[in-house]
Simulated scan of single mutants.
Amino acid sequence: MLKEIKYILLMLLFGQIAYTQVVHESAVVDTKKSNWYMNNYKGPVKSSFWYYTFIIDPIPFAVSNSSNIQSYARHSIMLQNRTALGGGVYEEFDSKGRLTKSIAMDKDGSHFEKSELDNKTASIYMYNEMDVDKKNKIKLKKRQIYPVYDHNILVKPNYKRPYDRGYGSDTLNYRYDYILDKKGRIVKEINYGRSTLPFTESEYIYDDHDNVSILKIITKQKEPTPFHFLDTETGFCPDLHVAYEYDNKDRMTQVTYYGCKDTLAFEKYVYHPEKEYITERTRFIKSSMRGVEHVTPTMIFYHNENGDIIEKKFVRSYPNQYLGASSIALRESIFYKYEYDKYSNWIKCYIYMVGKPEDSEPTAIAQRDLEYYDS
């Protein structure tokens, strides 16, 4: 009996050691699976184009029945569901999985049916291969998990963005430099943005498990522009930093944004008890300077095994708080149901804004056309 107990304890110990072994993966941000880019793709994606195929008409939760309000309400529905559908309406990736093109909207801005794209809203990404090869040698202790907001501690490649907005063309150059310690860990990120002089300098502080615990952010400008983080922005306070928390499996459980002796925003994660994915994500933003879909300071996003949002919940700040968003009256939750392809990427999204999928009809339906390198 004693031998059996020892054997079980040994196996449990081995399992724990195997689980916490260092995962040597590239620390370069994965633009296909990133909360920052609002991307969640699997497989050899070449391009993606999403658009609405159905929106309820008239909209029953519009604040009035006037034609103008109905039009505004339709647009508001699209804004409220952008988090679930993705950042760019159209995106392209190279064969190495890097984002090379992102277009924000179609020609008429309605995103309804597959129509001509507005290339004036396009962002083009051109990478320096020598820079990428060098930065790919910087390794992560563990893999990137969507939708963890780890973008700021990941390595960003240098890139160029040519653009033409109709009043002259130009090319913007974005540059990020990194300083490593003897262990190969990042100790500083110097962000030049699109300037020849540094914009910010971030200092990495590690815990006893070699996880980044604090990221100190210092402006390098005399008249700095606001710093953006977690869908909000703030000026540069002397104590501006981000704190990261982890569980006993070294998985990130909370990201907290501090400044001016206050908590400005945070996002915390609940993992599935057995499988390696996030089931629940709570985001808090104190300031009113937040995205239009962030109706209340606190919101909860529930995710399925594929990483997609199945419920977006607005947490009321006080009882009976009116949940209004630009010409529409919202319920407490918006629900989503999906159809998937062989790579577990959604190709059709059913949006429910007046009830759960089992007891209501969809408010809107979106489709996503995906092209792959292997087909």
Rank of each mutant, 00 (worst) to 15 (best):
residue 124 I to K: 13
residue 125 Y to W: 10
residue 127 Y to G: 00
residue 129 E to Y: 00
residue 129 E to I: 00
residue 130 M to E: 14
residue 130 M to Q: 15
residue 131 D to W: 00
residue 132 V to P: 03
residue 133 D to K: 15
residue 133 D to W: 02
residue 135 K to M: 01
residue 135 K to L: 08
residue 136 N to L: 08
residue 136 N to E: 11
residue 137 K to L: 03
residue 138 I to E: 02
residue 138 I to H: 04
residue 141 K to M: 12
residue 141 K to P: 06
residue 144 Q to R: 10
residue 144 Q to I: 13
residue 146 Y to W: 07
residue 147 P to D: 12
residue 148 V to H: 07
residue 149 Y to W: 14
residue 150 D to V: 10
residue 151 H to C: 11
residue 152 N to W: 14
residue 154 L to P: 00
residue 155 V to H: 01
residue 157 P to T: 01
residue 157 P to Y: 01
residue 158 N to G: 01
residue 158 N to S: 14
residue 159 Y to C: 05
residue 159 Y to R: 02
residue 159 Y to D: 08
residue 160 K to I: 02
residue 160 K to H: 01
residue 161 R to S: 15
residue 166 G to P: 08
residue 168 G to K: 10
residue 169 S to K: 15
residue 169 S to D: 11
residue 170 D to K: 12
residue 171 T to Y: 10
residue 174 Y to K: 02
residue 175 R to D: 04
residue 176 Y to M: 01
residue 177 D to K: 13
residue 178 Y to K: 03
residue 178 Y to T: 01
residue 180 L to K: 11
residue 180 L to D: 09
residue 182 K to Y: 10
residue 183 K to M: 14
residue 183 K to N: 15
residue 184 G to S: 06
residue 186 I to D: 09
residue 187 V to S: 02
residue 187 V to M: 08
residue 188 K to E: 14
residue 188 K to M: 12
residue 189 E to M: 13
residue 191 N to H: 12
residue 191 N to R: 09
residue 192 Y to D: 02
residue 193 G to R: 03
